[in-house]
Design a protein around this nucleic acid. Sequence first.
DNA 1: AAAAAGTATCACAATAATATCACAGTACAA
DNA 2: TTGTACTGTGATATTATTGTGATACTTTTT
Lengths: 232, 232
Amino acid sequence: MKQILIIEDDPEIIKLLEIHLSNLIYTTSKALDGEEGLNLALQNEYDLILLDLTLPTMDGVTICKRIREKKNTPIIMLTAKSEEIDRVLGLEMGADDYITKPFSIRELLARVKAVMRRTDVTKFEKKETSTITADGLLVDIERRKVLLNDKKIELSPKEFELLVLMASNPGRNYSRTELLDVIWGYNFEGYEHTVNSHINRLRAKIETDMAHPKYILTSWGVGYKFNEDIVT
Amino acid sequence: MKQILIIEDDPEIIKLLEIHLSNLIYTTSKALDGEEGLNLALQNEYDLILLDLTLPTMDGVTICKRIREKKNTPIIMLTAKSEEIDRVLGLEMGADDYITKPFSIRELLARVKAVMRRTDVTKFEKKETSTITADGLLVDIERRKVLLNDKKIELSPKEFELLVLMASNPGRNYSRTELLDVIWGYNFEGYEHTVNSHINRLRAKIETDMAHPKYILTSWGVGYKFNEDIVT
DNA sequence: AAAAAGTATCACAATAATATCACAGTACAA
DNA sequence: TTGTACTGTGATATTATTGTGATACTTTTT
């Protein structure tokens, strides 16, 4: 019997999911807010987690990341936003799939089955490396440490997160909105040019020539990306 | 053949949408005011509805809600206001996506395709080709990267969009007006020969012999097209 | 062949996007 | 409390991109 955890604050949706998932011989647990959901997810072994993006006490993005730090449980995000960008975001933060509300039950069940099928095979695969190396730069994610030519660099939290996110996927373009969503959080109400400032400060610490950055490149009219040509 | 319903009071925009949607092998119906639109939406089975927010006789929000009471037809809202509030409203009332006027046709088509893909359960596993190859040219749409004989080429936003659009349909002729509508947006007030300049700059970056272009060909008296004889 | 129409090219100004910097508010530790 | 580091934002500087005019060049038409 497969165990599914539902983290979702709308009781209507929970009810809906429970009815249809139990038809497929899955048993379900539920959590109504983020904190509770995270605890359940970490303390038990589920086969799948259905995770709402917008939740009380802790938002879905954070929960997803926190779960991924400890566990490999497959996660399907439930989100109200349907922009293409969000899809990528959801997957990059470690979710296995996403589905946008309002969704049809048929569609959801198809994805649940698909994820179950997929993870049966890949269940025992190893997690990714926790250090990134590129030219003279070394980023130790676990220890939150950055070395530039063997010299230790002190980064602020935001700077570090920016670096890790972008360096984890060299060559991928990140729009300012995307970065705000992922690092600042979904509900950040502020200007996009806040990102500029942080990129600027990050560059000041790791780049030798500010006019010609080696690591953090700007994609004009798009956003920023980590230089893919220098990763080892 | 997919059926799309357009509920929109501006005949110009309807015409524009019809032209470009028919290129994608969609057939369209149209309604010029809210009442008519609602009736059509309820009495027929459409695959998608494009719904203007501000309409005579009945506004878009009401129509959207009324449709949702009876049907699950995917809806994309067309709205002139760009405030964040309106977006959330649009989604909460049951719309699948929204797009703010003035929009570029390219953007709209992308969303239409995305919604179609999403709602079509059977096609979920299918992946879309995100790279185009032709002779020495490689266009990675997802990563916004262009390689010419394994050498990276930096393109400006407009140049990149022109290339992607035309390379996606090799051999198809694009008039200057069409390119302006699709890439610049239908509201662009400017000269057609703006396109010439951008094509010129694009060519300067990817063509080796400007006098005899290999990729971007000129259709005399018509417009431009991507050379269909070299795609792999 | 000349005129006309459409296209190519280029330089330059206007625009929009990004970079930089200073400063104030905040949080947090000593 | 004071001090310190971090962060968001305004102001301003600096760039890259873009639209346009002028002009040269082709192709088509007459």
